[in-house]
């Protein structure tokens, strides 16, 4: 093989190794550094540029919300267990299973409403612009876009519907 080609290829490989080594080391170091001593709410403060008093108010709201959320989660998990037990060996959906599904859906809706209520309260503890952005983002994450699922299933959009 051409000597010059070997030299150029070797140089390129060395450059790639140096870049990759420094890239992964810096990425790991930054992640370790940024995630250390960060609690669940640290993201809110940096993302929405909140002051300490605003954070203190939000922290109170968060602490008040967590037990309610936990209790609701426990109810949902219990109802899901009951539904799983009913559906376990059956080959069709009985009236009882249907009723459990309705109860589960109602619990989930209740939980979502409670969650949205919390997001509203948190957004009101922020400056108006940041609060609006927070609320939009939380809606996006928790409920998805407006009618996203329905749109995708209805065939109104130009996506391909595979069966």
């Amino acid at each position: 093989m051409n000597r010059s080609l070997i030299i150029v290829m070797g140089a390129l490989a060395l450059c790639g190794a140096i870049f990759a080594g420094s890239y992964f080391t810096a990425r790991h170091a930054t992640m370790v550094c940024c995630t250390r001593s960060a609690d669940d709410l640290s993201w809110l403060q940096t993302e929405f540029h909140l002051t300490d008093p605003e954070m203190a108010r939000i922290r109170d709201l968060h602490q008040g919300y967590l037990p309610k959320c936990g209790a609701m989660c426990a109810k949902i998990a219990a109802k899901k267990g009951e539904l799983d037990a009913l559906l376990g060996n059956s080959t069709n959906i009985t009236d009882e299973a249907q009723a459990k599904m309705n109860e589960l859906a109602a619990l989930r809706a209740q939980c979502q409403a409670q969650m949205l209520q919390h997001f509203l309260a948190v957004s009101q503890a922020m400056p108006p612009e940041e609060g609006k952005r927070y609320l939009d983002e939380m809606r996006q994450f928790t409920l998805g876009g407006p009618g996203q699922m329905e749109q995708s299933m209805s065939g109104d959009t130009d996506h391909e519907h595979h069966h």
């Binding site: 995630t35 960060a38 968060h62 959320c69 899901k80 989930r108 939980c111 919390h118 939380m138």
Partner: peptide, 18 residues
């Protein structure tokens, strides 16, 4: 790290099940 922090916050306020 920011994405992880965001996911941590979401996990704490919005359970996967809902």
């Amino acid at each position: 790290a920011q994405h992880d922090a965001q996911m941590n916050y979401l996990a704490s306020v919005a359970p996967e099940s809902v």
